[in-house]
Simulated scan of single mutants.
Amino acid sequence: MKRALLFSLMTVLFLASCGTSSAAVSSSIIVVNKGYTKSQNSYWIQVYDPKNARDTFKIIVKDKMAWSLLKNNQEYFSVYIKKGNQNVLKQIRND
C-alpha cells in the first residue's frame, strides 16, 4: 500500500514538473530588427512594447511571407504565444 501511494505521488510530481505553461499575449510592438537563423531555420523579429518597457525581445515568425512584410521602426498590434523563453507570433496587423 505504501509503495503504491509513493509511486502515485512520484508520478504526479514528475508529470507536474514536465509541463511548461504558455500564455497568449496581445500588445502593441515596434519592430527594431529582423533576421533569419540558419541553424534553426527560423525567422524572427526583435521588438519592444512602446507602452511598457524599452527592453527588446525576440518573437519567432513561422510564416516567411508575413515576416517579409514587416518593416523596422513600424508599430504593429500583435498576438503571440509566450512559452518559457520563446515567443511565437500568432497574429499581427499594422496599427
Results as ranks from 00 to 15, higher is better:
residue 38 K to S: 12
residue 50 P to H: 11
residue 87 N to G: 06
residue 56 T to G: 02
residue 59 I to D: 06
residue 83 K to F: 07
residue 94 N to P: 01
residue 24 A to F: 14
residue 88 V to A: 05
residue 30 I to A: 06
residue 60 I to E: 07
residue 80 Y to P: 14
residue 75 E to F: 00
residue 43 Y to Q: 13
residue 92 I to H: 04
residue 70 L to C: 00
residue 21 S to P: 15
residue 68 S to Y: 08
residue 70 L to W: 00
residue 42 S to H: 11
residue 68 S to E: 01
residue 59 I to V: 11
residue 16 A to G: 06
residue 50 P to Y: 07
residue 88 V to D: 00
residue 38 K to W: 00
residue 28 S to M: 04
residue 82 K to H: 15
residue 20 T to K: 13
residue 88 V to H: 05
residue 3 R to L: 09
residue 50 P to N: 12
residue 10 M to G: 01
residue 83 K to Q: 11
residue 46 Q to R: 11
residue 23 A to K: 15
residue 48 Y to S: 03
residue 16 A to N: 07
residue 95 D to S: 13
residue 14 F to S: 04
residue 69 L to F: 05
residue 13 L to W: 12
residue 95 D to L: 09
residue 91 Q to P: 02
residue 47 V to A: 12
residue 12 V to R: 14
residue 9 L to V: 01
residue 37 T to K: 13
residue 85 N to T: 15
residue 35 G to I: 06
residue 52 N to Y: 07
residue 49 D to Q: 11
residue 90 K to V: 10
residue 77 F to Q: 11
residue 74 Q to N: 06
residue 73 N to Y: 14
residue 65 M to Q: 02
residue 58 K to E: 04
residue 31 V to H: 02
residue 22 S to N: 09
residue 94 N to E: 09
residue 50 P to G: 03
residue 87 N to K: 10
residue 53 A to W: 07
residue 47 V to T: 10
residue 45 I to F: 08
residue 55 D to P: 07
residue 16 A to K: 02
